[in-house]
């Protein structure tokens, strides 16, 4: 069951009330990110950037160690009278691969943990959630006794529409 709100401020207020009443919010869907919502929902900070750091570090090591191996072990060649292990010349490629690994790794992780990807179809509660409606949803079953009180809550908190949908 979900309520659709016309404005993110009404929704924020509703989420606050729901939290005070200890209602079990399933999810909030919105057409754009709402600031101040995450702490209300009890969402911890995303760890995506930490993953990004790890991917980047892997990129740094891959590039630097590979070039070191090539020019000192596998096929040492002198270029322009410089040492085999000419570290300053490795910096550009090391930097580029750091960025490349971090970016690709983060984007892939992002879609993987979101359960998204090319051709994936996730259930959409209402078509207008990507347009101008802000949705607060609750997970209920038919036999639930709290359905009516939830409905009343949604209505009271300013939802313009209250609907149920089976997923």
């Amino acid at each position: 069951m979900f309520g659709l709100y016309d404005d993110e401020e009404i929704l924020l207020k509703a989420v606050k009330e729901a939290r005070d009443k200890h209602l079990d919010i399933d999810n909030v869907y919105s057409p754009f990110p709402i600031h101040g919502l995450d702490p209300l929902l009890g969402l911890s900070e995303s760890r995506l950037h930490q993953a990004g750091f790890v991917y980047g570090a892997i990129g740094t090591l891959t590039a630097f160690l590979f070039m070191t191996w090539v020019f000192t072990r596998d096929w040492p060649i002198i270029f322009g009278g410089k040492p085999y292990w000419s570290v300053p010349a490795f910096i550009p490629i090391t930097f580029e691969l750091t960025v490349l690994f971090a970016s690709i790794g983060m984007v892939v992780t992002f879609y993987a943990v979101n359960g998204q990807g090319p051709g994936v179809t996730n259930p959409v509660l209402d078509d207008r959630i990507t347009d101008d409606k802000f949705c607060l949803s609750f997970d209920v079953t038919d036999s639930d006794e709290g359905v009516d009180s939830l409905k009343a809550f949604l209505k009271e908190s300013g939802a313009s529409e209250i609907r149920t949908k089976e997923i």
Binding site: S30, I34, L37, Q116, V120, N122, I129, T130
Partner: peptide
């Protein structure tokens, strides 16, 4: 990609 607009996403 199956985007829904969920808060965590």
């Amino acid at each position: 990609f199956g985007w829904t607009g969920a808060a965590k996403h």
